[in-house]
């Protein structure tokens, strides 16, 4: 399986994502933001970091970079596009997934492990995964998901919520919400479920020596689904 990770100026999880994708069998290519064409890929990843320093609005300037037109075309033609953290912020700025990501409720950067409940296993991202709950890691300042009531209704009608913050038993309650996200939303799909944006970093959880190993489950499952 071939993957491509886009490097924007200020991306800083691009290497980590490259390491993770390769570890689970992807042939990954790094793509520079000023390139025009995407290499032939089965998966395109917008990695975490601080593209353009998070200045103006997180993800806003990266969403206008040259490569993004190809990414948008790729997504619109059904290609798998995944945005993690800052990548999620870029995705909402392009409009590929609905909503916005506001500053965390308590106005502080949060770096810690969280549990998320998988809400929709009908996509190639989570299909066939055995777990209901994954322990992943967040590290962000602007992960507070928000959308209008109309958008929320549409999101729910189309089963677009991918993952919610929860506790170890999968309970989705406000007290397990680290950043104030609407409905504890941690990740969201487009209507067609080929585009996924999420705040947690599966690529930081790919080895038992690290903060956890549930990211491995995610990547193993993902590559199997794409085969």
């Amino acid at each position: 399986m071939k993957s491509a990770v886009i490097t924007f100026p200020g991306s800083n999880c691009d290497r980590d994502m490259d390491v993770a994708l390769k570890k689970f069998g992807f042939k990954n290519k790094m793509v520079w933001h000023q390139d025009v064409e995407l290499p032939k890929s089965d998966l395109v990843v917008l990695p975490g970091g601080f593209s353009y320093g998070d200045y103006l609005r997180c993800g806003s300037m990266a969403s206008k970079s040259k490569i993004m037109q190809s990414v948008i075309n790729f997504a619109n033609s059904g290609g798998m596009v995944m945005g993690i953290c800052n990548g999620f912020q870029i995705l909402v700025e392009t409009g590929l997934v609905p909503g916005v990501l506001l500053r965390n409720k308590y106005l502080e950067f949060i770096c810690k492990n969280v549990f998320v409940k998988i809400r929709n296993k009908n996509s190639d991202y989570f299909k066939n995964i055995n777990n209901e709950v994954l322990e992943l890691h967040i590290a962000h300042n602007e992960g507070n998901y928000f959308c209008t009531n109309d958008q929320l209704k549409e999101i729910e009608d189309h089963n677009q919520i991918a993952i919610n913050y929860c506790n170890i038993d999968g309970k989705i309650e406000e007290k397990f919400n680290p950043n104030g996200s609407l409905k504890n939303i941690a990740g969201i799909f487009n209507k067609e479920k080929n585009v996924l944006g999420m705040m947690p970093h599966p690529e930081r959880m790919i080895d038992p020596s690290l903060s956890g190993n549930d990211g491995s489950l995610f990547f193993k499952n993902l590559i199997n689904n794409l085969k």
Binding site: D16, E108, F109, C111, H201, R204, L210
Partner: peptide
Amino acid sequence: IWQQYDHTVMGDTIQK
């Protein structure tokens, strides 16, 4: 304090 610092980026932190 340290929860406000990204201590896991680069994917090699084995003691936080």
